[in-house]
Design a protein around this nucleic acid. Structure first.
Lengths: 255, 255
DNA sequence: AAACAGAACTTGTAAACACAAGTAATCAAC
DNA sequence: GTTGATTACTTGTGTTTACAAGTTCTGTTT
């Protein structure tokens, strides 16, 4: 059985169009607006957001709709809600640190960090990708190999090995990477964005080479990170291995 | 002005008790049950979850309530929803490895992991929170102290120290935490959700105690993690220190 | 048998309502 | 002035109703 609608819920579409032009849900609209207001500085951290009922009036929607928007904002860390008080702006959720998504450059701060290229960049065939499995395509293409030593406050802290599949990476071997963020170069010159990845962490004792680079005695403990980094290019991964002398600098990051 | 309720919404509380024993919201109840069914293997990845209406009947709640539970499950990656089709089980979200956001239990898999309580849970005064700064309130409240040894495949792999501010944590010291996920206990009994945090990683050599726990010789390298973990309770942080013997198991996680 | 129409499901969006519970300001009583 | 109850906010939870829109099966038509 069919019942005539008691009231018109949404304004009749003026023009019927393809589905890609379908209305954006109202709770998402509200979310977008408030989110932009927070990241745009209309509301500062610590501010009290308009109450749910005020937001209802502002956006001409009902409370469940507003609440759905605020649910998401709270979930993503833009706001904190307090029963009986209101929603307090927390700010734009801070990014993920060295261990999470960015290279060491942005974590330590560009000023104090020097990067010395030890080897490469040069084309090699894969030996292994730090125990991550390699696809056939990757294996056949060879890799761009790079070894760097990172120096903070005149002390060598990181030694990293980076391996990038040699697929559509023109002129990479002739690039000057000294004191540059690798991720910046990849983003600007190859439109490669880091999306996420997987990492494995272990503690080892320094081998001859690390003893030499870090200037530490035999038996010195070192953190080793093996990372497989996803990019916006589907199926294209960066592989990197980082050794870190945590005597004076620790690896820190948010999650 | 006051209006008599048109209908009784929820069954009258049989006995009025203190606030820590307040009713757990129904959408959270439903969430917990379905979540356990997924991680417990009642539903396998690829399976179609009961429809929202069926879940309504099962749990004797209405659709918005069920939807709120499913919203969260989808958000956390347990399920994927398809309009017109249903909700498909994706499985326990891997990736939330030890380094990212969850405890070791979900990272390794519950089957193989045993947890032995070494000390506590007991109330102590703070000595320090692994070099994280403590607020005045935290310092004055004292902390719940807990030491655990995690055993994977009969090999001790993790030793962790957890410190929780003793603020509104009734009966925590008398809880049995043996072979349980601490985060699960906190979520179910105290409605504490992990939101994120900060961690610092370093490599050390095992001291007397770790040599004993891990059964490793002197000079053995060990990964140390100091973590400050944010929760949904504003200003309430968990502090934990994890030592990991990475000989046979590495710390892995996604980002 | 193949194609189409429709019914009968599914989830997605949104409103309107009712009440619970936490917070903060106000105001009266002491 | 201080205390304590009241009141007027705030967010939290839950129900009911209505319709939109995607998917799948079924039955009829061709």
């Amino acid at each position: 059985m069919w019942f005539a609608p008691l009231y018109p819920i949404r304004p009749v579409n003026q023009r019927k169009e393809a589905s890609y032009n379908r209305e954006i849900p109202r709770h998402i609209r509200v979310y977008e607006v408030v989110r932009q207001h927070i990241s745009g500085g209309v509301y500062s951290p610590g501010d009290l957001l308009p109450s749910e009922n005020e937001l209802c009036q502002l956006h001409k929607v009902t409370r469940p709709t507003v609440r759905k928007a605020l649910d998401r904002l709270a979930n993503e860390g833009f706001i904190v809600r307090h029963q009986g008080k209101g929603s307090i702006v927390k700010g734009v959720p801070k990014g993920v640190g060295i261990l999470a998504i960015q290279g060491t450059t942005s974590a330590v701060g560009k000023e104090k960090l020097l990067t010395r290229i030890i080897t490469g960049p040069e084309i090699r065939s894969w030996t292994e990708a730090f125990s991550f499995p390699l696809s056939k395509v990757e294996q056949e293409s060879g890799c761009l190999y790079l070894e760097r030593l990172r120096i903070v406050d005149n002390k060598p802290v990181f030694f990293d090995v980076t391996m990038i599949p040699n697929i559509n990476m023109p002129r990479f071997t002739s690039r000057n990477l000294e004191n540059k963020s690798l991720f910046d170069v990849l983003r600007k010159n190859y439109r490669l964005e880091v999306k996420g990845g997987e990492q494995r962490i272990l503690a080892i004792t320094a081998d001859e080479r690390l003893m030499h680079f870090f200037g530490v005695p035999a038996g010195h403990p070192v953190v080793q990170l093996n990372r497989r980094i996803e990019t916006n290019r589907p199926g294209f991964f960066l592989y990197s291995q980082v050794f870190c002398n945590t005597d004076e600098f620790v690896l820190s990051g948010n999650f």
